[in-house]
Simulated scan of single mutants.
Amino acid sequence: MRKLILAISALALAGTAAFADPIADRKALMKANGKAAGALSAIVKGEQPFDAAAVLAALTTLSENASKIDVAALFPAGSDKGDTTASPKIWENTADFQARVDKLKTDTAAAVAAPPADVDSLKATLGTIGNNCGGCHENFRIKKG
């Protein structure tokens, strides 16, 4: 009976994955990244005290989310249509887009492996990660309004 339940659960999960919405999935990742980056930014700006555990948690979120960015799965052909700000440049220059994603993965993983110990080192770390995000958004995102 247990094997039957596991098999049915696996099939249900596989069916759900087949109907995944790449636009919604990437929006959810970006929203979570924005929240994590916002928490780090508040510390850098002095709006929140430096808390090593909170910094590591936010950096871990950024790193885990970066590792989930599978360009082929989240940016399949045709997913530039609909409620998205993804620029057609993603599909025109996928190699550059992938390189930027890979750099984000590397930089966020490095930040988790050696987390900042104080506000000044957090500023440098956030600057590196922010440059990754900003560069990608500048080149591969359509600005709203």
Rank of each mutant, 00 (worst) to 15 (best):
residue 1 M to E: 08
residue 1 M to S: 12
residue 3 K to V: 06
residue 5 I to C: 07
residue 5 I to Y: 11
residue 6 L to W: 11
residue 8 I to D: 00
residue 9 S to E: 02
residue 10 A to R: 05
residue 11 L to H: 02
residue 11 L to Y: 05
residue 12 A to Y: 02
residue 12 A to V: 14
residue 12 A to D: 02
residue 13 L to Y: 02
residue 14 A to Q: 06
residue 16 T to V: 14
residue 18 A to F: 15
residue 19 F to Q: 13
residue 22 P to V: 04
residue 22 P to A: 06
residue 23 I to M: 07
residue 23 I to K: 04
residue 24 A to Q: 12
residue 26 R to P: 07
residue 27 K to S: 07
residue 29 L to Q: 09
residue 32 A to D: 14
residue 34 G to Q: 05
residue 35 K to I: 15
residue 38 G to K: 03
residue 38 G to L: 03
residue 39 A to L: 07
residue 44 V to L: 04
residue 45 K to Y: 09
residue 45 K to C: 08
residue 46 G to D: 01
residue 47 E to P: 12
residue 49 P to M: 07
residue 49 P to W: 04
residue 50 F to M: 01
residue 52 A to Q: 08
residue 55 V to H: 00
residue 58 A to V: 05
residue 60 T to E: 02
residue 62 L to G: 02
residue 65 N to I: 02
residue 65 N to F: 03
residue 67 S to M: 12
residue 68 K to W: 06
residue 69 I to Y: 00
residue 73 A to M: 07
residue 77 A to Y: 03
residue 78 G to M: 09
residue 80 D to G: 15
residue 84 T to V: 10
residue 87 S to T: 01
residue 90 I to G: 01
residue 91 W to M: 01
residue 92 E to A: 15
residue 93 N to K: 10
residue 94 T to R: 15
residue 96 D to K: 11
residue 98 Q to F: 01
residue 98 Q to C: 04
residue 99 A to S: 11
residue 100 R to P: 08
residue 101 V to N: 00
residue 102 D to A: 15
residue 104 L to C: 07
residue 105 K to P: 03
residue 111 A to P: 06
residue 114 A to Q: 10
residue 116 P to N: 02
residue 116 P to F: 02
residue 117 A to S: 12
residue 117 A to Q: 12
residue 120 D to I: 04
residue 120 D to S: 09
residue 120 D to T: 11
residue 120 D to W: 00
residue 125 T to K: 02
residue 130 G to I: 00
residue 131 N to L: 13
residue 134 G to E: 09
residue 134 G to M: 08
residue 136 C to F: 06
residue 137 H to Y: 08
residue 139 N to Y: 12
residue 140 F to T: 06
residue 140 F to G: 02
residue 144 K to Q: 13
residue 145 G to E: 11
